[in-house]
């Protein structure tokens, strides 16, 4: 058995070198990692999660980032975040592809960890978020034009969004057909946000509004 191996043990010099360099490398890696990951981004605001997602904080922990829900989505609506603490977690960019509310919720079925609550079985009871008209002045329908695309595309038409007609005083002989979101019915699927014809959608999905308040005024 030869004894002239030089790498059998850790030499003092090597150890010191390692001990000095390693923390340096770690610190560098951390800094680099943090700059990529912990950038203030989507994770800090509202992120539209797939149907059945549990409360945001718990979701971040429960989701193991396996991407099975995304693979299960027939519309490729579910994407995975690629930065910040939500990295690898699924979200829906409704403006690109909204959730089309598959009746059998394949994404929920695919989730192994319960991050998407397996008790979610009825699409009507899904609460991903709540649609809001964020720019009333911009909304073509509220300006009196016959648009109402969000309303007609809404999978819960006449429930989650209804049209409230009122006289248009500007022309004196037409009707303003204002789309109104009903929070208690809206599932937050984002189809309206996807369909809005304006360059920046005036109807978007925001955090689920639990308390019903009436911000709808004439």
């Amino acid at each position: 058995m030869p004894k002239e191996r030089d790498d059998s043990g850790i030499s003092r010099r090597r150890f010191l070198k390692g001990g000095a360099l390693a923390p340096l490398a770690l610190a560098l890696a951390t800094a680099g990692g943090a700059s990529v990951y912990l950038r203030p981004g989507e994770a800090h605001g509202f992120v539209l999660r797939p149907p059945g997602a549990i409360a945001a904080r718990r979701f971040l922990a429960a989701c193991v980032r396996c991407g099975k829900c995304a693979q299960a989505c027939p519309y490729h609506a579910i994407r995975l975040q690629d930065r910040s603490v939500g990295i690898g977690t699924p979200y829906i960019a409704a403006r690109q592809i909204p959730c089309y509310l598959c009746p059998d919720l394949p994404c929920v079925k695919a989730c192994p960890s319960g991050a998407l609550d397996p008790k979610t079985t009825e699409v009507e009871k899904v609460r991903m978020g709540t649609a809001q008209i964020v720019d009333r002045e911009g909304c073509l329908s509220i300006r009196g034009l016959r648009c109402e695309v969000c309303y007609r595309q809404c999978p819960l038409i006449d429930q989650a969004i209804t049209l409230e007609p009122r006289h248009n005083p500007r022309t004196g002989e037409h009707t303003i057909m204002e789309p109104v979101v009903h929070r208690e019915k809206c599932v937050g699927c984002g189809v309206c946000e996807n369909a809005c014809v304006l360059p920046k959608p005036v109807i978007v999905v925001r955090e689920t509004v639990e308390v019903q308040r009436d911000s709808y005024d004439f």
Binding site: L140, R143, L145, P169, R170, G172
Partner: peptide, 14 residues
């Protein structure tokens, strides 16, 4: 009788 009302200065309607 009011027949037409314009209250915006910015981009025209539509």
């Amino acid at each position: 009788q009011l027949a037409y009302h314009n209250f915006e200065d910015a981009a025209p309607e539509g």
